[in-house]
């Protein structure tokens, strides 16, 4: 088993660092640990925040006996010595995206940067199945791994002050979707009519760490007729 580093970052937070490189297998271990901690919280546990190569554990030291760090480390060591199950959900969330000019504000930039046509960018973007590593930046914002390097494009020099909710973008070698209206520097290639934030549901975000995501292209007409129920979930056998 690869060893991990424990670094207290405050009196009430501890980072468990698995590696210094981004890797899907490692992210599986992180998500597995997160699940274990949420399902069997130790006394004083508040929450666990997975990221690419780390998990941050927030706790209330006042509710714990002396030396909370040692207690937490022994809990985590216990989980890490057990085998990693595959935590990735065996299904793919299919998200409709309209790539037409009205929404794909920077599609031409992405195309010309990579010497491709608009259609080729769309084909490449919709062909891949992406893995949700974790959520961050803003509520429900998925950090996705696995984008085809042929459509990689640097961020905009000056971020836009306001991007509409549902904007689908590319930044460097990453792709993602903005769930709410925010400023942002990503190159915007399209927009989804689907809501990624659903506060009334027990799970407030459409996507969860460990999900797989695939985008598919829809027309402008479909964009305006789309309903939330049209998000499809493909189950693998």
């Amino acid at each position: 088993m690869q060893s991990v580093r424990y670094i207290p970052i405050s009196e009430s937070a501890l980072i468990v660092e698995f590696s210094d490189t981004i890797d899907l297998h490692l992210n599986n271990r992180i998500l597995q640990l997160s699940k274990n901690l949420v399902n069997n919280p130790f006394p004083g546990f508040i929450e666990a925040v997975p990221a690419y190569t780390t998990i941050t554990i927030h706790f209330d030291p006042v509710k714990m006996k002396e030396n909370p760090y040692d207690q937490i480390i022994s809990v985590i060591d216990h989980y890490l010595t057990r085998s990693t199950k595959d935590v990735r959900r065996k299904k793919t969330v299919k998200i409709p995206v309209c790539y037409e000019e009205e929404f794909g504000l920077d599609l031409d930039i992405v195309a010309s940067h990579n010497q491709l046509t608009r259609e080729q960018v769309i084909d490449i973007h919709t062909a891949k199945i992406y893995d949700v590593y974790f959520l961050g930046f803003s509520p429900g914002f998925p950090f996705l791994g696995g984008m085809d390097p042929r459509i990689a494009t640097p961020r905009k020099k000056t971020p836009r002050l306001q991007l509409p909710a549902g904007s689908v973008g590319i930044a460097g070698s990453q792709t993602g979707v903005y769930p709410s209206t925010t400023p942002g520097g990503w190159q915007i290639i399209g927009r989804t009519p689907v809501k990624l934030l659903q506060l009334e549901n027990p799970s407030p975000t459409l996507l969860q760490p460990g999900d797989r995501v695939q985008f598919y292209s829809i027309s402008r007409e479909d964009f305006f007729n789309q309903k939330q129920e049209d998000v499809t979930w493909d189950y693998e056998s």
Binding site: I9, I15, E17, A51, T53, T54, I55
Partner: peptide, 8 residues
């Protein structure tokens, strides 16, 4: 690589 932060 983006990682957790806290108040302060």
């Amino acid at each position: 690589i983006t990682e957790g932060v806290s108040f302060g």
